[in-house]
Amino acid sequence: MPLPIAVFWERSDVSGAEHALLDASDGLYARGTVVAAKPVPFVCHYEVRTGPDWASARLDVRAEGAGWARAVRLELAAGRWRATASEQGDLDGALTRNGHAQAGLPGCTDPDLLYGAFDVGLSGSPLFTTLPIRRLGLLGSEAGVSHRLSVVWVLVPSLEVVQADQIWTPLGGDRIRLAGETSSADLTCDADGFVDDHPGLARRVRSAS
């Protein structure tokens, strides 16, 4: 069915973009597409759903490029994540031809490592930063008080699923600091918690009307 909100980001780290259609009236339901030119040209389609509390419940992702395609489904059931994955063709061959290391396998070899995570993330996607922002109410939180999270992180384009540690710190107003294991960025958000600017990753593009 048609979804009421459209958001679009232009990537700043590589040539690429993200477009998502979503409904945020009762948690989040979103369908989106990510395209990027590196590490190999690919398109990635996703569908994500949270509960009313914005805790992640399900994520379906499909990625494909010349000569390969991969898919992964993540579902939370009885407090534990279940991952199912498939692959066709030769992503590793496409990566090595472009001077990159081989990719990990799609999915997760040990879903127990994901236990205790309430948020899913998709590398290169600014949409998914909204999930912990809304779930924790970070825009209305006390500035300077940090939240350490364990996140179910899907690497694109390999669709390997890993556990990632993140630290989220409200800075006051519309700004939130996101720190990962190797980098950090000060995000600027709109009043609904969607990212307007993620330095080093993407900037939101709005229509002129």
Rank of each mutant, 00 (worst) to 15 (best):
M1T: 12
L3G: 09
L3D: 09
P4I: 01
I5V: 15
I5M: 11
A6F: 02
F8H: 15
W9A: 03
R11E: 12
S15H: 10
G16N: 03
A17W: 15
H19Q: 14
H19T: 15
L21Y: 09
L22H: 03
L22P: 02
L22G: 09
D23W: 05
A24V: 01
A24N: 02
S25Y: 01
G27T: 02
L28S: 03
Y29S: 12
R31A: 14
T33S: 03
T33M: 03
V34S: 01
V34F: 04
V34W: 06
V35I: 12
A37W: 00
K38C: 02
K38T: 15
P41V: 10
C44L: 13
R49M: 04
D53R: 09
A55K: 04
R58D: 07
R58T: 13
D60Q: 10
G65S: 04
G65I: 10
G67Y: 01
V72S: 01
V72K: 00
V72G: 01
R73H: 09
E75C: 11
E75L: 11
A77N: 11
G79W: 06
T84Y: 04
T84L: 14
A85F: 01
A85P: 02
E87K: 05
G89A: 05
G89M: 07
G89W: 08
D90T: 09
D90Q: 05
D92S: 07
A94R: 06
L95F: 00
G99M: 10
Q102Y: 02
A103E: 07
G107S: 11
C108A: 15
L114Q: 08
L114D: 13
G116C: 09
G116P: 02
F118N: 14
L122R: 11
G124D: 03
L127D: 06
T129V: 07
T129Y: 08
T130L: 09
L131W: 10
I133P: 04
R134P: 08
L138N: 13
L138T: 13
L138Y: 09
L139R: 15
G140Q: 00
G140F: 00
V145H: 11
S146L: 00
S146D: 06
L149A: 10
V152A: 11
V152T: 15
V156D: 14
P157F: 08
S158F: 01
S158P: 03
E160W: 00
E160H: 02
V162M: 04
A164F: 10
A164S: 14
D165Y: 03
P170Y: 13
P170E: 12
L171R: 12
L171T: 00
G173I: 12
D174Q: 14
D174H: 07
R175C: 08
I176F: 05
R177A: 08
A179M: 05
A179R: 10
S183M: 06
S184Y: 14
S184L: 11
A185P: 09
T188E: 15
C189E: 05
A191P: 00
G193D: 00
F194G: 11
F194N: 10
F194P: 03
V195W: 05
V195A: 09
V195E: 02
D196L: 15
H198G: 01
G200R: 08
L201E: 07
L201F: 02
R203G: 09
R203E: 11
R203T: 13
R204M: 15
R204H: 08
S207L: 10
A208L: 13
